[in-house]
């Protein structure tokens, strides 16, 4: 073998070795080096799906890699929770949650709860609320509660079916005020209930400021109070339930989670990227302009919140007689 040929072969081998090992070496140093898979546990085009797609569209440039959203709906997020928990905890598979992260285990649907995941960020929340028709006689929540009290089981209210956050918010109000509504159960979120309210088929309906915003702007319905810690943007003249003497603070809280055991530095990389996205004015305006609230909670803050949320739902679910946890 001539030295020239040998040199050629040697160079070739070096190049090949570098090409093979470089991604591995880089992979150990740099996260992420391939697209992230984002599991959405709800159908394409729904509220949870849209909020995620909008957020990830602002996040990709900060992360440097694409985020591929994959819908895996089934059992109100249950199927996606199962899938995420079984995925490799390497930060390349993440997903979103609603309050179902707390409720599923207590109700015996799946053996997974908030402790089985690593929260990355909480990015949005929508508090519960009570709505009546614009021309209804009740001006405050107390007036409506008194009406319901004087006629037990007669005042009608539309709320999503049992197990949904909307329904738990209604039950919390019932338990707090010591009243009992005649409930119209509706499948598919609070939307249909608010439509039934606008059509005059029920006295009241449960719904978030976001869900009621269109009909509120159309002058068909108005809120009596929201279950938020402070007043909601776009609804500054609507007192919270707390202000009105009903200390209820219950929200639909949306978080991003990773499987348990995902390395802390990778969780942090993801958190920093999502944090920048949440702080984009376009993102914040899009939420605030219709009565929704953006959040930028760190993983630690999320963990604390989840503990409190678990306690709240455990209590409500026990009182409602639906408590049958799987461990």
């Amino acid at each position: 073998m001539s030295s020239r040929k040998f040199r050629g072969l040697f160079t070739f081998l070096v190049v090949v070795t570098i090409m093979i090992t470089a991604p591995i070496v880089c992979a150990q140093k740099k996260f992420p080096n391939k697209p992230i898979q984002f599991i959405v546990g709800w159908g394409a085009g729904g509220g949870s799906d849209l909020s995620v797609r909008f957020l990830t569209s602002h996040t990709e440039k900060h992360l440097g890699k694409p985020i591929n959203v994959r819908n895996m709906s089934g059992g109100s997020g249950a199927k996606a929770y199962m899938y995420i928990s079984k995925s490799k905890p390497d930060g390349y598979t993440i997903g979103n949650t609603t309050s179902t992260i707390s409720t599923h285990r207590f109700m015996g649907n799946i053996p997974l709860g908030s402790n089985d995941f690593e929260p990355i960020i909480a990015f949005n929340e929508d508090p519960g609320g009570v709505w009546v028709a614009t021309d209804a006689p009740w001006k405050t929540l107390a007036e409506f509660v008194n009406h319901a009290k004087s006629r037990p089981g007669e005042a009608t209210i539309a709320a999503s079916n049992p197990g949904s956050i909307t329904r738990f918010q209604m039950m919390a109000l019932e338990q707090e005020a010591g009243i009992e509504f005649n409930v119209l159960s509706q499948k598919g979120g609070a939307g249909p209930g608010l439509v039934a309210l606008a059509g005059g088929h029920v006295n009241a309906a449960m719904g978030t400021p976001l869900e009621g915003f269109s009909l509120y702007s159309a002058g068909k319905i108005r809120p009596l109070g929201f279950m938020s810690a402070k007043r909601v943007a776009k609804y500054e003249d609507v007192p919270t339930m707390k202000e009105q003497g009903y200390p209820l603070v219950i929200s639909t809280n949306r978080m991003i989670i990773a499987p348990k055991g995902t390395p802390a530095d990778r969780v942090d990389t993801l958190y920093q990227a999502f944090l920048k996205a949440v702080h984009t004015p376009a993102y914040q305006n899009a939420l605030e302009s219709k009565g929704s609230t953006w959040l930028d909670w760190s993983p630690e803050k999320c963990k604390e919140y989840l503990k409190r949320q678990d306690a709240i739902f455990e209590k409500i679910i026990k009182k409602a007689g639906l408590y049958r946890p799987i461990n």
């Binding site: 085009g45 915003f213 269109s214 009909l215 159309a218 899009a286």
Partner: peptide
């Protein structure tokens, strides 16, 4: 009224909202 009457219009509502249109 801003009410989605079907699965398709629910997605359209989302599209409008993402553009900050109610």
């Amino acid at each position: 009224l801003g009410i989605p009457g079907s699965a398709v219009t629910a997605v359209l509502l989302g599209a409008l909202m993402m553009h900050d249109i109610t």
